[in-house]
Design a protein around this nucleic acid. Structure first.
Length: 549
DNA sequence: ATAGGGTTAG
């Protein structure tokens, strides 16, 4: 791929503008049209560009030929439209050409043809180029977007406009090039909020959240999308606390949140189990007519309730939804499954099927996880099979992960081992950890030792396997082996971060860490755990709290 | 014509 870099860093006013004829000659077409539709674009009728200046300004937007362009829905209809445009003398009309390029780029396989058509125009403009670049971007082909920009916009001396730059920042981000993205930001004649917002999101997508925040803090005129961009990127990189904190600042600064804002914050509240904040946002939605909840907002609201364990409220929101998406159903199944209401989870799945919504990959992860939590081995196998056989979903590593977990917890270690080996052959090595965990739960020391040693060999920097292996030894009282594993960890300079829990009581929060020296906190938490444990025992569950003070 | 939003095991 050759990238023409000339002129990029010159101020645009200093570009020499070529005459249209020269410009046409300077093009070397790189984009082949599909042969099926490769009719002669070089044909020019004498009527081709005979519209006068008056007509140029007053072309009726409802002109029958433009309506025909809009209605065109496949490439096969296009040669006829093209011919009519030429006969009407409208082929070179900028307005007509823009409509044609926009339509062509949206048709399957039409993008190459749109580019060939642009080459034949005497006056291609920024709008047309932006349309084509955006289509490359949307089709997951940012490289071609970049080549197009250098070749046709820079090479063809078409003046980019303020729509071009944000687009090019996104192109560079998708290509994975921070440097080019910053250069585009650097050469922009004026930087509006849109380009700043693209830059912020671009930094985050390239993995630099700190830089994104710096841009956000530095930018002069933030709008609601700037805040939303920042909130959503915090959610994407799992910095939920940051998301809520920034939302507080937003509200203090009297910036009016919109639907997208609330979606991000609700998602963060769900992961943080901040039911109080989530409820506050629910109230906010109901008290502000300005907010028009759509499927996305309703779904994030019910997901928040589901993650916080309030399944009644989740169900209320779910029932009130005028329209439900696959994601809404998935969230309900996930909520029921992870709060021990397995029957409800499976019932919801059946209702989903009845309602005609087609389950997706994520649905089956929720269903299989629900089966795993409750030890429903047969049901798990059944749904695993339904997924493949009925819904034609190829099981992914995640699905196998649920199955290994399901079989492992239930103690079917032999099946688990075989399944893990099978997946390993298919290239997924991530499941050995789950198998090792199952060995620990069911005290299968022989298999556990084998898998643990193997895992440590494979992933010497991953501390998970060391800890599980050492726990397996400890459970057998093999303290010498425990010491060996611990020493191995120490020799490699690895150490485990102390675990940390957080509990919220109304307005107050309590952080608790094992390395925490506060005896008072520790005693308080252990006594509370004992109380919970005795209540669990009374309710007939086998689960009990082991407290080692 | 441009920028921002929901689900996924252990």
């Amino acid at each position: 791929m050759t990238v023409v870099r000339r002129n990029l860093f010159k101020p645009f006013s200093s570009l020499t503008f070529l005459t249209p004829q020269k410009r046409l000659k300077s093009y070397t077409p790189q984009f082949k049209s599909p042969s099926k539709y490769c009719y002669n674009l070089n044909f020019r009728s004498s009527l081709d560009s005979n519209f006068d200046e008056k007509e140029k300004n007053t072309l009726n937007l409802n002109h029958p030929i433009l309506q025909k362009v809009d209605a065109c829905c496949n490439l096969a209809q296009f040669p006829q439209i093209h011919a009519q445009l030429i006969i009407l003398g409208l082929f070179q009309h900028p307005l007509a050409a823009s409509r044609v390029i926009k339509k062509l780029s949206s048709l399957p396989n039409g993008l190459n043809l749109a580019v060939s058509l642009l080459e034949k125009l005497e006056e291609a403009d920024a709008f047309m180029c932006n349309t084509i670049i955006r289509s490359y971007l949307n089709q997951g082909n940012p490289d071609s977007g970049l080549v197009f920009y250098y070749h046709y916009v820079i090479g063809g001396c078409i003046m980019p406009n303020h729509y071009t730059f944000p687009l090019m920042i996104m192109v560079c981000v998708d290509v994975g090039s921070a440097v080019d993205g910053e250069k585009f930001f650097g050469v922009m004649p004026q930087r509006d909020a849109v380009s700043w917002n693209c830059l912020i999101d671009g930094c985050a997508r390239l993995g630099d959240v700190i830089a994104a925040r710096e841009c956000f803090d530095r930018m002069p005129n933030r709008n609601v999308v700037s805040w939303n961009t920042m909130l959503s990127l915090y959610v994407r990189c799992k910095e939920y606390d940051e998301c809520v904190t920034l939302f507080d600042r937003m509200m203090k600064g009297k910036v009016q949140p919109n639907e997208a804002t609330l979606v991000s914050v609700l998602t963060a509240c769900g992961y943080l189990c901040r039911l109080d904040r989530g409820k506050w946002i629910h109230q906010y939605i109901e008290n502000n007519r300005r907010i028009k909840p759509d499927v996305l907002l309703y779904t994030s609201l019910l997901t928040m309730y589901a993650k916080c364990g309030d399944m009644d409220m989740a169900k209320n929101v779910f029932d009130s939804m005028p329209e439900k998406s696959v994601v809404s159903w998935n969230s309900m199944i996930m909520g029921y499954g992870s709060h021990g209401l397995v029957e409800k989870a499976l019932e919801t799945f059946l209702e989903m099927e009845k309602s005609g919504k087609i389950p997706n990959e994520a649905t089956f992860i929720c269903v299989l996880a629900a089966c795993a939590h409750s030890g429903k081995v047969l049901e798990g196998w059944w749904y695993f099979d339904v997924m493949h056989r009925v819904y034609k979903i190829e099981p992914k590593v995640e699905h196998y992960g649920c199955m290994v977990d399901l079989l492992g917890r239930a103690g079917f270690l032999k099946d688990t081992e075989e399944l893990t080996k099978e997946i390993h052959m298919k290239g997924g090595s991530a499941l050995w950890g789950a198998l090792l965990s199952a060995c620990h739960t069911h005290s299968d020391i022989q298999l556990g030792e084998f898998v643990g040693k193997w895992l440590i060999e494979q992933k010497p920097k991953d501390i998970g396997a060391y800890l599980l292996l050492s726990n397996i030894y400890a459970a057998q009282g093999r303290w010498e082996d425990v010491d060996k594993v611990r020493k191995l960890l120490k020799d490699k300079g690895l150490h485990k971060e102390a675990g940390c829990s957080k509990a919220c009581f109304g307005e107050s929060e309590l952080d608790y860490s094992l390395k925490d020296g506060s005896i008072h906190k520790r005693n308080m938490i252990h006594s509370m755990m004992r109380q919970i444990s005795s209540q669990v025992k009374l309710s007939g569950s086998e689960m009990a709290y082991q407290c080692d003070t």
